[in-house]
Design a protein around this nucleic acid. Sequence first.
DNA 1: ACCAATAATATAGCAGTGCAATGCTATGTA
DNA 2: TACATAGCATTGCACTGCTATATTATTGGT
Lengths: 207, 207
Amino acid sequence: MARTKDPAVRTLLIERAAHMLRTREPVTLRSLVAGTGVSTMAVYTHFGGMDGMWKALRQEGFTRLESRFAAVATSQDPVRDLTALVSAYLGNALDHPDLYRVMFDASFDLEDLKAADATLEHLVQAVERGRGAGRFRSDTVPLELAVQSWAVAHGLVSLVANGPLPRQTLDHGVPMLTSLFVGAGDDPAGCRLSVGNGWRQPRPSGG
Amino acid sequence: MARTKDPAVRTLLIERAAHMLRTREPVTLRSLVAGTGVSTMAVYTHFGGMDGMWKALRQEGFTRLESRFAAVATSQDPVRDLTALVSAYLGNALDHPDLYRVMFDASFDLEDLKAADATLEHLVQAVERGRGAGRFRSDTVPLELAVQSWAVAHGLVSLVANGPLPRQTLDHGVPMLTSLFVGAGDDPAGCRLSVGNGWRQPRPSGG
DNA sequence: ACCAATAATATAGCAGTGCAATGCTATGTA
DNA sequence: TACATAGCATTGCACTGCTATATTATTGGT
C-alpha cells in the first residue's frame, strides 16, 4: 500500500561509491549523491546512513572477491589451485586497494563474518582436495591451513597495498606458501612446481 | 628571538591521544585539547594539523613497538629470539589495537618508512644470527626472511585485532613460523623446540 | 477508475568536524 | 628598553553526517 524502494538506486549508489573509491575521490554523503538525481535521503532509506553504506560496500567487496575466486579454474592439482586462489586474492586487493581497505577497516559484525566465511570456504575446499589427494598429511585440518594461507595473503597484500612495503614484496608469496604447504606435508619439489604454476595464473591487470 | 614551543605540550597531546584511543573516545581536534588548558591551535603549531598529529601518533606507535622489541632478550638460540620478536609484535598489537590500526591505516611517507625499517631491523639481525649459527641456509637473505616473518605477524594480528578471526587464531603463528623457518633450512625438530620457547615469552598482559 | 494509506523523497536546518584568519601576548635579541 | 618573532586564544567558515518536516508518488482495496 505504499511505494517500494527502487533497487536500482541502491546498486547505483554502491557502484558509484566503489568508483569514487577507485578514483580517490572523497566519498561523502553529499558527494556520493551529487549528479545522480537522487537526494541525500536515499542513503538513509536504502542504507540507514553512511555507516550502512560502508557496510554494504564491504559486502560488495566480498562479493567481488567471491566472483574472482569462482573464476579460478579447478585443476587436477589442488596445491596449484590453492596457490591460484591466494594469487587471485592478491590480484583483487591490488586492483581495488581502497575497497580492500574498506573491507577490513571497520569492525566486523555477524553479516560480515558470513561473507568472510563464504570466501574462506574456497580455500578450505582446496585444502580438503589437497588432503584427499595425499598432498597434505591426513591430520591436516583444512580450516587451519586455509586460515594460514589467508593470513599470508592478507599480511603480504595489506603491507603492500596500504603499507610500507614495495610491490615486489608480493613475490615472497611463493616461498611463503611453499614453506607452508611443505610444512603441511607436501613434497618439496612437487610443491614448488605446483605453487609456481598457481602463482602465474592469469591475473587480470588493474583497471 | 621568539617564544619556543613547549615540548611538554606536544608529548601531552600525543599521550592524551593515545589514551583516548585506548579508551575508545573519539579523537577530534576539540576533544583532544578539551580540559588540557591548551587551545586547538596548539595542534597546528606542534603538528601542523590533525593529519600531522596522527602521523606523530603513528611514530609513537613505532617507538613503543621499538621499546618492546628492545625488551626481548637475546639468547643463544636465534630462532627462539626471532620467534620471541614476532610474539612481542603480536603482544604489542593486542595491547594497543587502535594504536596499531593507526600505525598501518594512513599512507606511509618516508618518515614512517624509516620508523618501520628501524623496527624491522630487529628481525633482520635475528635472521642474520640464525644464518650465522647455521640454522638457516647460507643463501638465506636476512631481509627477505624478516619481511616474511613480519607478513605472517601482521597478517595474523590484523585479522584478529581488527578483523573477523577469533583471538585463538594467533596460535597458528607457531606452525606458520615453524614452516617458514624449516623452509629456510632449519632442522624441523629443533625448530619446533625453538619456536615453542620463543612463543611462550613473557608477554605483558594488556593494560 | 477512484481513493486513501503509506513509504520514499526533497528541502532546510541542526550539531559537530578540521582548518584559516585575526589580534594578542610572551620571549629572546639587539 | 625597544623590537621582531612565534606561540597563543578567539572567532568564523566550509564541510561533514544526520534529522525533522513537508511533499510526492506508488500501491492495494473498493
